[in-house]
Design a binder for these strands. Sequence first.
RNA 1: GGCCCCAUCGACUAGCGGCCUAGGUCGUAGCCCUCUCAAGGCUAAAACACGGGUUCGAAUCCCGUUGGGGCUACCA
Length: 457
Amino acid sequence: MIRTRFAPSPTGELHIGGARTALFNFLLARSAGEQGRFVLRIDDTDAERSRREFELKLMEDLRWLGLDWDEGPDGPGGVPCRQSERLGLYAEWMSRLREAGAVYPCFCSDERLGALRREQAARGEPPRYDGCCRALSSGEAERRIASGERPCWRFALGGEPIVFEDAVRGHQVFPSGTIGDFVLERSDGTPTYLFASAVDDLAMEITHVVRGDEHVPNTARQLAILDRLGCPRPVFAHIPMILSADRQKLSKRTGSTSIREYRERGFLPEGLVAYLATLSWSPGDAVSPFSLESLAGAFSLDRISRSSPLHDESHLLHWQREAMHRRGTARIRQEIAERDPRFGVLEDRMDILIGDLLDEHPLTGELERALAFLVERPAGERTEWMPSLASALGELEPWTEEELNGLLRAFMRERGMRGREFFHPLRLLLTGRERGAALPLVLLALGREEAVSRLEG
RNA sequence: GGCCCCAUCGACUAGCGGCCUAGGUCGUAGCCCUCUCAAGGCUAAAACACGGGUUCGAAUCCCGUUGGGGCUACCA
């Protein structure tokens, strides 16, 4: 049995990095077939920044990408999957830790903690909590609590190094002393992410934790908790973070990275998935990156690379083009008609042009603009030869691409015009654009009546 | 500063001691086609960061240097 989870905190929109983490977790679970489960958990222990609105968007975006979960906050699993709804569970495990003497109350002020860090940095030591309050007698601790002080609770780290095998990074060692006693329960009684997440992975019987490698140091801490409790460890797989073109952590400042934004710009979910699947992992030549099933069939953790890929929109665009071609013109036409009902009446006449315009305008919105001339007549200048072209077109039989092509060329030659001299003003009048699909196709799509009418004025 | 990680064409990657004169894809350049922009066809430029080892043999293993990244919170 393989159980994976994607556990975002609902403090913002789903971005490229989060989506890839979700994808890898999804693929790992699906690669196990019937034996795999993919869980969506909402890590909202940060009450300040968590918002229900983001949670809803997150789920919508995940579904849009095709990453369906087997258990999640909206229900199929039946268990609460929001950390804010599982507070009782954390309290339960906390009292176990208290009984075991694995945690202690800490009364240190922010000021003392800040000063401590500064001193340690100045001395070239790793910054960590010095265990000051560990020495407090239980009597004194009780007295201070009784007098109204609100301590946080820290985990009392043992002296042994923490060692684990990461499924992508290999053997990991954290010597004791490199990390200090960390907070499990805040002074307001709420659990920290570190604690809630460890408890949840345990309670949800998560077998594999695939997450960004910024969590590596957290893993050591979470393992310390699990070990102290004598609980089984999940397998950890830390995947490299996706960096922006300037090799920095992806942020809003480095351009669009939110899935929602890409969606609104007209990117297709299959294209996005194919792109994400090639970042730090590659499905191999024989596998179609456009199908989640085939990706799942090829997926394995040991093929994940350890170096950070750079987010590159030109690659995304390439997968987008491919995805659009795979959708086919009929389906794209329907989508455009949904966005703008005026296109609805055109039906298959749009197909004539879509194939020709797709590569240059791989995004639905752009494509829509490139086709706009079909539904709104552009203002353009008429040359003196256009009315006679109109009457020639009026008599053309049959109205086909080949005949149109022949007529245009013959007309151009008769008048002694060069290609550009003839086609350019014609294109401008009919489409309002400098560039676009081949003109016989433009005429074919417009239809005889409309084409003649535009030329006559 | 401390701890950890990473390092193949501009980018995504294949490569897991001999199959490497390093393969593919995107991008770039040129040519063909052409009314335009693309697409398509053909071609080209383009990488094992550097220095030491180990080995008959290293892009692949080890060490160092350099460069990049992550973490260093009562955020996640």
